[in-house]
């Protein structure tokens, strides 16, 4: 056990899985960096410095730097997975799915089903999500709801370093394509993480807080923002259950249902947008299954229906903050 960052925890999972299984290969841009240049090898160690050092341990045969060719490289990762490797492809920003949609949404997601179950596609796609770095509309989105739309994909949105390490190991060992969404603002988050290898099953929410008055469901970085709100609300005598689903596919509806059964009130906090997003999805499922348990309308706390702006003042008002969550919780308590 030692204190590790979210970034280091992810790197450790990659390293453990590469040691464990020689068929695990990494595919992506600048995973090492420096290929063909006159300077240092492993110059970047990943665009987010997550894969630093791995090329030195495993060689360029297993840490495959690609040209700027998301369609070909993600497609190659799909093909390699179907042929029996366990590739971990990196899509630098989830926003870039625009150039490789077919590979992810049609090839990876549907390969097994379309071919009548003859093959499996044990592919992991690591990608990054989230606003907060003034990167603007095409480098700041939280597009995981898009992936959860597609049956055949599994979607992981880890909020902590501990979860990131265990869930990534599960993702790599899983026999289906998994989209692993790393929030860039969490890379520096640090906590105690076991040094040993471990896995966390998909479809098991983490109960972050137990309160009993209101159920708050939050995803990825929003778990931390919601936790801040929950602490503040507790001072005022409102005790919230805080649930982090950790994976949006599979989605642990049982844990959410159990909590809503007791509280009758649900607030969902999502950095993805308000339309066709995870918050909407969970709201619909709960409304359909748990209507009689609800004592107040379900509230969603999401960004507005707008692209992510770059200017810090605009971006701050785009991303949900604790005060909006507190207001939403108070509003459901009034009913």
């Amino acid at each position: 056990m030692s204190v590790k960052s979210y970034r280091a925890a992810i790197r450790e999972a990659l390293e453990h899985e590469m040691q464990r299984d020689p068929d695990v290969v990494l595919i992506g841009q600048d995973l090492a960096g420096g290929a063909g240049g006159g300077g240092e090898d492993d110059a970047w160690g990943g665009p987010m410095a997550v894969t630093k050092g791995l090329v030195g341990k495993f060689g360029r045969e297993r840490v495959l730097d690609t040209p700027v060719s998301e369609a070909a490289s993600i497609g190659a990762a799909v093909g390699a997975a179907a042929a029996g490797l366990r590739p971990v492809a990196e899509l630098m920003f989830c926003d870039f799915i625009g150039v490789c949609c077919d590979q992810i949404l049609n090839q990876a997601a549907k390969y097994r089903y379309t071919f009548g179950g003859q093959d499996q596609v044990p592919l992991t796609i690591r990608t990054t999500i989230g606003a907060g770095q003034q990167l603007g509309s095409q480098h700041s989105q939280a597009l995981y709801p898009l992936f959860s739309y597609f049956p055949g994909l599994k979607v992981v949105v880890p909020a902590t370093a501990y979860d990131a390490k265990g869930l990534l190991a599960t993702a790599i060992r899983d026999n289906d394509p998994v989209i692993f969404c790393e929030h860039r603002l969490l890379y520096r988050l640090r906590e105690d993480v076991p040094d040993e290898s471990y896995t966390i099953p998909f479809g098991e929410a983490r109960i972050v807080e137990e309160g009993g008055d209101v159920t708050v469901v939050a995803l990825s970085r929003m778990v931390h923002v919601a936790a801040e709100a929950v602490r503040a609300l507790r001072e005022d005598g409102i005790d919230c259950d805080l649930i982090d689903p950790r994976t949006t596919t599979p989605l642990d509806t049982d844990t959410i249902f159990d909590s809503v059964e007791a509280t009758g009130r649900l607030v969902i906090v999502d950095e993805a947008g308000p339309r066709c997003g995870t918050a909407s999805d969970i709201a619909a499922i709960v409304a359909e299954e748990m209507f009689n348990a609800l004592r107040a309308p379900i509230r969603r706390v999401t960004p507005p229906y707008a692209p992510v702006p770059a200017a810090p003042e605009l971006e701050r008002s785009y991303v949900p903050d604790a005060s909006r969550i507190i207001a939403a919780v108070r509003s459901v308590m009034e009913r």
Binding site: Y162, G166, P194, E196, S197, Y198, T199, I200, I207, E210
Partner: peptide
Amino acid sequence: SREMVEQVLRFKRIEAA
């Protein structure tokens, strides 16, 4: 308690353990 379950889970999930 939830913490007890979480602690046991975290331990049991370590493969070597």
